[in-house]
């Protein structure tokens, strides 16, 4: 884990309300282990917003890392206002990575909303290792997509309103892909309802799946105990520690679908 003052290399809106920021952060980029890991960003040096914001790493190469973020609150507005050449303090790389995507299975990469950041990253890693795969990205509307719907390239987009790609959620193309391919392994990141649906589908159909979950975090490295998710285990007791609840910052953010449960 490193704290590094990083220079903003670029910061642009790539789709409606969706932004991509590149940082020059050679030390964090050097320590980066793979898709799924995140950085914890200090948006402002003052104490108006005391907590850092965790963001999944969307790429890490040549001493640079990138994030993809959606504007939905004060801090993401601050991020969007930051200009090339400014510096911000980053902590990272934190968390674990997607795994076993290169062990002979057929990875199906599923991203929803800004949860596509680690999914795009994993796609690059698959391409670099020449691992055949499919990617499905869901959004509410076409203006939130910044990549093309290219079924012939195994890239499927979905939108809730049908303006681009398949109308509906990522589950529709996922069901088709599962039928058409053998030995699939699902890798998903996105809003909780999407992860919940992917998890249910995977468990019901006995398909292995890894989910990258999002959470508010106080620190990102185990001090505050703030970012927990319940483990899927019915024998756990309350007079235990770290059996019922897992710390997303240290144990995650990537979990096997069967190991956790939502709400």
């Amino acid at each position: 884990m490193i704290i590094e003052r990083a220079r903003i290399k670029s910061n642009c809106e790539v789709a409606h309300n969706i932004w991509e920021m590149h940082y020059e952060a050679p030390n964090i980029a050097d320590s980066y282990l793979g898709a799924g890991q995140f950085i914890n960003i200090l948006a402002l040096d003052d104490w108006s917003h005391p907590l850092r914001r965790p963001m999944s790493i969307a790429s890490a190469e040549d001493g640079c890392i990138s994030i993809i973020y959606k504007i939905f609150g004060d801090v993401t507005k601050i991020l969007a206002s930051q200009k090339e050449g400014e510096t911000v303090e980053l902590m990272g790389p934190l968390g674990n990575t997607f795994s076993n995507w290169d062990n002979g299975t057929y990875p199906v990469l599923i991203g929803g909303g800004v949860g596509l950041a680690p999914i795009l990253n994993l796609k690059k890693e698959c391409a670099a290792k020449k691992v055949d795969h499919t990617m499905i990205i869901g959004a509410k509307s076409g203006n939130e997509h910044f990549i093309e719907h290219e079924p012939e390239e195994n890239i499927y987009l979905t939108t809730d309103d049908g303006t681009i790609g398949d109308e509906g959620t990522v589950m529709e193309p996922l069901k088709r892909i599962i039928i058409e391919n053998k030995n699939t392994y699902l890798f998903a990141c996105g809003p909780e309802p999407m992860l919940h649906a992917v998890r249910e589908f995977a468990l019901k159909n006995n398909i292995p799946a890894q989910l990258s979950v999002e959470s508010y975090m106080g620190c990102g490295f185990g001090l505050c105990q703030g970012c927990v998710i319940q483990r899927h285990n019915y024998e756990i007791r309350d007079d235990s520690y770290h059996q019922k609840y897992s710390l997303i910052c240290l144990d995650g953010p990537v979990y096997e679908a069967g190991d956790i449960s939502f709400g």
Binding site: P50, V228, H242
Partner: peptide, 29 residues
């Protein structure tokens, strides 16, 4: 005296110049 799992999530939220936590004394005992 005994280990504690602590409270269900969400346990923390940022507030203006501060944060609210409700960890529930999660600890190893």
């Amino acid at each position: 005296r005994k280990p504690r799992e602590g409270n269900p999530p969400p346990r923390i939220v940022e507030t203006p110049s501060g944060m609210i936590n409700s960890i529930g004394l999660a600890n190893i005992g």
